[in-house]
Write a protein that binds this DNA or RNA. Structure first.
Length: 884
RNA sequence: GGGAGUGUAGCUCAGUUGGUUUAGAGCAUCUGCCUUACAAGCAGAGGGUCCGCGGUUCGAAUCCGUGCACUCCCACCA
């Protein structure tokens, strides 16, 4: 490289908008994000957690994708062949809800459309609005291989999903059956257990009186407590505990459902909690999972009183057609009017809500498709428990195990249209076959039904749960299904390196990808999983649309720059913890960028000076020291990133640049204005800065690239550069650096405290005994404290400021009159501290047990501490004597 | 109801298998400086009963028990 900077005038500040566009376009044009298998590099692969095709960038994405980008860019600098695969998820229920809403705005009712008509609207919508989020990820700077952009309803992907369904069906994992499911009355579809969120709500507990068929001596009614009075029309029994003395004489008798006066039995079961309510439970097998189980056990009738849309059915008599929640209020009034309400209490209970539509879930008996999970789960549990796949933080292993050990069959059918249609076919006699195409289905059905007419067969209307396609993501983005054997891409990139995702979808997605990977590739899908935290606002509240506390990310990127946004997000995101988002972090990032920019400006000033050969400066301590510091931090950062301590690593790099490079190193190599600059030192300053930019690049890609280019580094494209390999560190140099910093800081402090200006000239006296160890850094120290001379001496210097630094004493002599009271104060303070310190050590050492039991090296350390403290106190006392 | 986790400076967090000082960093605060890279800065400073109590140990922020507070996950109590 040339020593002088390329002759281009620097803007006063870093222009982030222009730079972001310039470099991202260049990287794209260059194909820097694209990956192909090769034989010379190891692969480092990440598949993006595909955002919903309906999605827009929010803070969660910003965190998740910034983390992935850091890992990818870092791996690239370490010479891995990095491949980060982008894409979107068709997100059946979420997208369908959006399309339905859009149609509604246009005055179109989904129910009036044929399947084909609806889907064509959906595709139009998808092409127009879908995937906006991918464009937004570009704004964030993500190094995604856009050529690989995948969609979970691409043709190949669709086929893979269907093939997997057929395969699992043939293996006996998939079956059809009537079970109690979670019904979303708004989306009118079944949901899996994972798609139901339980929230505590304020409800009412209604005490409803049922008239006994035969009144007893003491009672005419039996009273139950319920939060759902609207379901009483579906009651088919009253249940009490067999040991409940209050109701012994009623077991086996009958009572009447109020309003409709239907006769139902009073049964007994140990399931009942005697303590709760009145100890009597109304049993509604159609609308409660527990009641359903009781119904099976006691062979009760099932009366379904609620329609698919949450209104009451014909079985609900005069309430037919009314909404279930209206009926809850209405029926309470009606019951009260006829004297059947004993009392109403406030009550808190857990209610299930649809994850997508937020509708209150209705437990409902329904015919659905199911996938048996036990056999799939077993190996998937093992690979996590034995750390074949490593979880970060590892506490999620527990969560994972608990779910996997109690796994239930997966309800995979959804009563939606947007998604992968279930490849099941029926004839009009109720025969069922599984087939990939209509032709195949017809042929298969013919075997069962010789007289079948082609026109009468029909395909199942349902589509598959969106996660039934997502679980193939790491496989099918590499076209696993078409080329199961000899798939060079899959062999090279799979298993992927790292999955970065949110803990919320550990069951939905992570667990199932592991199952699918093991089932279909006989290999884990990723080597490690890093679970990011939840993004919260400053007050610790989860960011959400309803709270309106979610900032507009694109606006932030525009205002602060992508680098500053990434900095703000990553600095506040310690491994495994939630991220408390605070705009102050972005501000800090922006200031950091400014600092870096100004360092560049200083280097440019240096390079405009006359450059000379000055071997003394070349070998100066400044260069020796910074080289070691750089190496040291590089190693520490490497360890941090391996453990996903990204914020720790960033803090170290930040401090290395701001403090070590700018505040110390650049000041140390500064020459007076009228003096030239040593060529080699200047070159080193450039090289170090370039390396710093490489280290920071994964976090802040744009500013670092811009600087890297300005420095004239080759290759100019930082993504083509590689981090220099590490060497061993010379600890003595690092230590001397620390000592020099300490001496400079203390002298500066002493000058201020003694009323001197920072730039006032002094004469510095250092102890003869430390001459050898300090000499290497002596010139730098002198320069930094504006000392015209350094004298080594063992004699006390009169009329000076005396300082105790480390374990020696030094003196500053100055022209000015000195008020010694400050010194005295400081020394006395130190004296008190070290006296206390000494006492604590002496206490320890005089404890025989300590000396006997502690490891010898520990005792030795204590002895050394004692010796040092005594020495320090001696010097302090000497200084004090000098003052008085 | 079960499980997991957290509690260290005003705020956000480090603190490796118990012992390198009487606990560190960033932000915020305070003081002094417009020292020609940067006042978006520089140079300094102050600030802590390591949640409480008990125990193990020669020695505890660190290990154990217990209490308190908060967070998250799971679960069908009407």
């Amino acid at each position: 490289m040339s020593v002088s900077l390329p002759a281009m005038a620097l803007d006063k500040n870093f222009q982030h908008q222009a730079a972001e566009k310039k470099w991202y376009d260049l990287w794209i044009a260059n194909g820097d994000f694209n990956s192909k298998p090769n034989t010379t590099q190891k692969a480092y692969t990440i598949v993006i957690p595909p955002p919903n095709v309906t999605g827009v960038l929010h803070m969660g994405h910003a965190l998740n994708n910034s983390v992935q980008d850091v890992l990818i860019r870092y791996a690239k600098l370490k010479n891995y062949n990095t491949c980060w695969v982008p894409g979107t998820d068709h997100a059946s229920i979420a997208t369908e809800a959006k399309v339905v809403a859009m149609l509604q705005e246009q005055g179109i009712d989904k129910n009036t459309l044929s399947r084909e008509e609806f889907l064509s609207h959906a595709w139009v919508w998808k092409e127009k609005y879908g995937g906006i989020i991918l464009q937004q990820l570009k704004k964030l700077g993500c190094a995604l291989d856009w050529n690989r952009t995948a969609f979970t309803m691409d043709d190949n992907y669709y086929e893979a999903v269907i093939d997997v369904f057929i395969d699992l069906y043939n293996k006996g994992y998939i079956y059809r059956g009537v079970k109690m499911i979670n019904w979303d009355p708004k989306a009118k579809t079944a949901l899996s257990d994972e798609e139901v969120n339980h929230k505590e709500v304020q409800s009412k507990l209604y005490y409803v009186k049922y008239k006994l068929e035969e009144a007893t001596n003491d009672r005419e009614f039996i009273t139950v407590a319920t939060v759902r009075p609207e379901t009483i029309l579906g009651d088919t029994a009253i249940c009490v505990h067999p040991n409940d003395e209050r109701y012994q004489n009623l077991i086996g008798k009958h009572c009447f459902v109020p309003i409709i006066n239907r006769k139902i039995p009073i049964i007994a079961d140990e399931y009942i909690d005697i303590e709760f309510g009145t100890g009597c439970l109304k049993v509604t097998p159609a609308h409660d999972i527990n009641d359903y189980n009781l119904g099976i056990k006691h062979q009760l009738e099932v009366i379904d009183t609620i329609n698919e849309d949450g209104t009451m059915s014909a079985a609900a008599a005069m309430y037919e057609g009314m909404d279930r929640f209206e009926v809850r209020k209405k029926i309470a009034i009606d019951l009260d009017a006829i004297g059947h309400i004993e009392k109403i209490e406030d009550y808190k209970n857990q209610v299930g809500f649809s994850e997508r539509t937020d509708a209150v879930i209705e437990p409902k008996l329904s015919m659905q498709w199911w996938c048996k999970m036990e056999a799939l789960a077993k190996p998937a549990l093992d690979v996590v428990m034995d750390d074949t796949i490593k979880f970060y933080p590892s506490k999620f292993k527990n969560t994972y195990r608990h779910w996997m050990e109690n796994i239930k069959d997966w309800c995979i059918s959804r009563q939606l249209r947007w998604g992968h249609r279930i490849p099941a076919w029926y004839d009009d006699k109720g025969n069922l076959v599984i087939a990939k195409t209509e032709d195949e289905a017809f042929a298969k059905l013919q075997e069962k039904n010789a007289t079948i007419q082609r026109a009468t067969i029909r395909q199942d209307e349902d589509v598959l749960d969106t996660w039934f396609s997502s679980w193939l993501w790491p496989l099918e983005v590499f076209h696993w299904n078409k080329q199961k054997e000899q798939n060079a891409e899959l062999d090279y990139y799979y298993p992927t390196a790292t999955l970065v995702t949110a803990p919320e979808i550990i069951f939905f997605w992570v667990a199932r990808m592991i199952m699918a990977g093991l089932e279909y590739k006989k290999q884990i899908p990723f080597q490690q999983v890093y679970f990011t935290g939840i993004v919260r606002d400053k007050q610790g509240r989860k960011m959400s649309k309803s709270l309106g506390n979610s900032p507009d990310l694109l606006k932030l990127i525009e205002d602060y720059g992508a680098d500053a946004v990434r900095f703000g997000v990553l600095i506040a995101s310690p491994a495994g913890n939630d991220l408390l988002f605070d705009e102050a972090g972005l501000e800090q990032g922006k200031l950091f960028i400014n600092k870096i920019w100004n360092a560049l400006k200083l280097l440019q000033l240096f390079s405009e000076k006359e450059t000379i050969d000055n071997p003394e400066q070349t070998d100066s301590f400044a260069n020796q020291w910074f080289e070691q510091r750089l190496q040291q931090v590089k190693n520490l950062v490497d360890e941090d990133i391996k453990e996903f301590k990204l914020s720790e690593a960033l803090k170290k790099i930040y401090s290395l640049i701001w403090d070590d490079y700018c505040s110390w190193y650049l000041e140390w190599i500064k020459t007076p204005q009228d003096q030239g600059m040593d060529k080699t030192t200047l070159k080193k300053a450039y090289t170090y800065f370039g390396e710093l930019m490489q280290m920071l690049h994964p976090y802040m890609p744009f500013i670092t690239q811009e600087i890297y280019a300005h420095l004239g580094m080759q290759p100019q494209n930082i993504l083509e550069s590689r981090l220099a390999t590490s060497t061993s560190i010379q600890q003595d140099i690092i230590l001397l650096g620390e000592q020099a910093k300490q001496i400079i800081t203390q002298i500066r402090d002493a000058k201020i405290k003694n009323g001197l200006k920072p730039k006032d000239d002094i004469s510095l006296y250092l102890p003869q005994t430390h001459k050898d160890s300090l000499s290497l850094a002596a010139n730098i120290i002198a320069k930094q404290v504006f000392s015209s001379t350094i004298t080594y001496t063992q004699e006390p210097i009169d009329q000076s400021i005396s300082l105790v630094i480390d374990k020696f004493q030094c003196y500053l002599k100055t022209e000015k009159e000195i008020d010694q009271s400050h010194q005295k104060e400081q020394l006395e303070k130190d004296q008190a501290y070290y006296n206390g310190f000494l006492m604590s050590i002496e206490k320890k050492l005089s404890n025989e047990k300590f000396v006997q039991n502690a490891k010898p090296e520990i005792v030795e350390i204590e002895l050394k501490k004692k010796k040092d403290a005594i020495e320090k106190l001696r010097i302090i006392e000497e200084s004090l004597k000098l003052l008085s």
